[in-house]
Design a binder for these strands. Structure first.
Lengths: 247, 247
DNA sequence: CGTTCCATTGAGATGTGTCAATTCAAGTGG
DNA sequence: CCACTTGAATTGACACATCTCAATGGAACG
């Protein structure tokens, strides 16, 4: 079975037989809006679309040689790093249209591992090619600087969350973040499935599994949320916003 | 008093009257090692050296239009952002040779404020010029990608610290970080002055001032540290490493 | 030489972690 | 298809690290 035929399995629309950046429905998220049609085609040439990876498999490991950054096409991944004492820290979740792997640029080694939370397809963007193309295409260069800068600001938001906010505020903020990322992909902002485990959520938010679970229960009791294992329905988004310290 | 003459006041060596990137003693930290002599001169032309800013003054405010990134020449700054509920979160401390302001690239607005912790001189690097020069100089482009990537990995380290580590581990990690950054600048790794207040330290580490103060006292009782207000002397760096969860 | 902010120390309150038991969901093999 | 196994999720009781509140001491600055 070739990579190409496996890709087809993941697509709703069978006649969309040739995926490229120009026709990808995620390109408004992952690509610069500013890129001209011509530029998109050039970018398209360096992007490699490989076969999906199964749940639990790694896209790359911490310490691997850095070669590429990746754009998520479908599925979801978590990134995490291992501390010197062997504990793990989840540093991010990545959904379709989002870019990961940029933390490997500084040392030519991946600073974190990326693991699929469900069957996941990615576009691989070799960094050498991206660099060369960026030098020729100012808008691409700018876009990539912006993507990295966004990663920095998002990390800073997480820092703030971990440093200043209660368990309830942290969980509420994560739910709202996933909700709005769904909305950006034209999916439901109020009903969705969490691809990650409670353990991952707790790890990401600096909480124990038990605390995460208790917060979900409390939110359910308040009728802000309907929780059924990984299925989430937001019943009162304003209520959750009020918990999330947006006021 | 002109900017030039004020600069002189901050320099130990009066005959070093014309500062440029080529002769700056910080260039091994702040600049790409890979840059050729010629390239350095080109970079030098876009860098603006302005007069020092006084303690407490701002280099930029959160929400300001983003124009430039900055390299610290002398002194120290803190970066912080204000949450929706009005609380502040210190996101980083910046010492000579280090670059700040990159979080403003993604939205063309500074995502944090930068405030001088003591009299501080910076090199301003207009981002537009940096972009143009990067497109012409592959090594500069790469270097800047690396600097941004490093910022990401450092933020991830802080995330891990905040999420997983005790008060003692956090404070120990900060002391070790400042110590090694001093060493990189050929200053003492064991005796130095903390330019920031206990409030800033606590804010950065997600702790209250009181907890920070108590940790310092405990470390002193263990004879790992000699603390005299902002003056720090590391008596037993291995002891501090052991507290910092490096084991 | 007062004023103000920063730092330290103590005593008590509290949110979250730890430990433990139970239920639930998913996958496996008979 | 059902029993079995395994890991995930929930819930409760208790412990403890850190926060909060409060008082004092010390440094910096006009």
């Amino acid at each position: 079975m070739t990579g190409q035929s496996q890709e087809l399995l993941t697509k709703p629309c069978a006649h969309d037989y040739k995926v490229n950046c120009g026709n990808c429905r995620l390109n408004s998220i992952c690509l610069p809006l500013a890129l001209e049609r011509d530029d998109v085609e050039q970018l398209d040439e360096i992007v490699q679309r490989s076969k999906p990876i199964q749940k639990g498999r790694f896209l790359y490991h911490e310490g691997d040689e850095f070669q590429s950054v990746f754009a998520v096409r479908s599925g979801a991944l978590k990134a995490f790093r291992t501390t010197d004492s062997g504990r793990e820290q989840v540093t991010g979740f990545y959904f379709p249209g989002e870019i990961l792997g940029m933390d490997g640029i500084s040392n030519n080694l991946h600073a974190s591992s990326a693991q699929a939370l469900e069957t996941t397809a990615v576009c691989e963007i070799p960094f050498n090619s991206l660099e060369k193309l960026s030098a020729l295409m100012p808008s691409l260069q700018r876009h990539f600087f912006q993507i990295m800068s966004r990663e920095i600001t998002e990390d800073q938001q997480l820092i703030t969350l971990l440093s200043k906010n209660s368990a309830e505020e942290r969980v509420a903020a994560l739910i709202l973040s996933i909700s709005s990322r769904n909305a950006r992909r034209k999916l439901s902002a109020t009903r969705f499935r969490l691809p990650m485990s409670r353990i991952d959520i707790g790890n990401y938010l600096g909480l124990t599994v038990e605390t995460v679970s208790r917060v979900f229960s409390r939110m359910q009791k308040l009728e802000f949320l309907q929780v059924n294992n990984k299925e989430i329905e937001i019943k009162d988004i304003e209520g959750i916003r009020s918990l999330a310290d947006i006021g």
